[in-house]
């Protein structure tokens, strides 16, 4: 099993930390992982993205031009990465702020209204965990016990009291994600 994922959105949306929690959970489940962020000026107020690879084998390139899954949190990233999803692959997006919808018919497209839901629940800081939950519903690559361990490892000890909220957000995300039919 090798899963090649791009997570992309605005800086500050928790793109990198979502990737880190996923990657650390993978490590806890004894998988090979790599986490390759965009870095530098583009992250300061612009778009941020991270490539996460989970595998049962040694990982070759941490830099990729096509992905099994794209998790997209803004329009710029959708424009950039929709075409980079492998045929038959998965595209997940949050419709908040999306004006031009994805249009490919050879991939599986899902939407998750995580930003809206997080706002309603007052959980906007862990909106990224709702998105992660949606992804894990479709691709349960990492088991909940290892997500728990991944959260413990990724978050500084002073934030460990927030782990139950993070896990709750993941569960909410699992119920929130829905398939999107691309119309002509």
């Amino acid at each position: 099993m090798t899963e090649e994922i791009i997570i992309a959105g605005f800086g500050g949306q928790g793109v990198l930390s979502m990737g880190k929690i996923l990657a650390y959970s993978g490590v806890m489940q004894n998988k090979e992982v790599s986490w390759m962020p965009s870095y530098g000026p583009e992250m300061r107020g612009g778009t941020a993205n991270v490539t996460v690879i989970l595998s049962d084998e040694r990982i070759s390139s941490p830099i990729l031009n096509s992905f099994d899954t794209a998790i997209i949190l803004n329009q710029q990233s959708l424009d950039k990465f929709e075409k980079a999803v492998k045929p038959g692959g998965l595209l997940i997006y949050d419709p908040n702020g999306i004006t031009k919808l994805p249009s490919r018919k050879d991939i599986n497209i899902y939407s998750i209204a995580a930003a809206d839901e997080a706002g309603k629940l007052g959980l906007s800081k862990i909106f990224n965990m709702i998105v992660l939950g949606g992804f894990l519903k479709l691709k349960p690559l990492v088991q909940p016990e290892f997500i728990h361990k991944g959260l413990e490892k990724s978050l500084p000890a002073r934030h460990h009291k927030l782990i139950p909220d993070n896990e709750k957000a993941i569960e909410i995300g699992k119920g929130l994600i829905q398939a999107v039919q691309v119309l002509n």
Binding site: A23, V33, W35, M36, Y39, I59, P62, I63
Partner: peptide, 10 residues
């Protein structure tokens, strides 16, 4: 290089 410096792995 910058990529190996910035990326995370096990």
């Amino acid at each position: 290089d910058g990529a190996i410096g910035q990326m995370m792995e096990k």
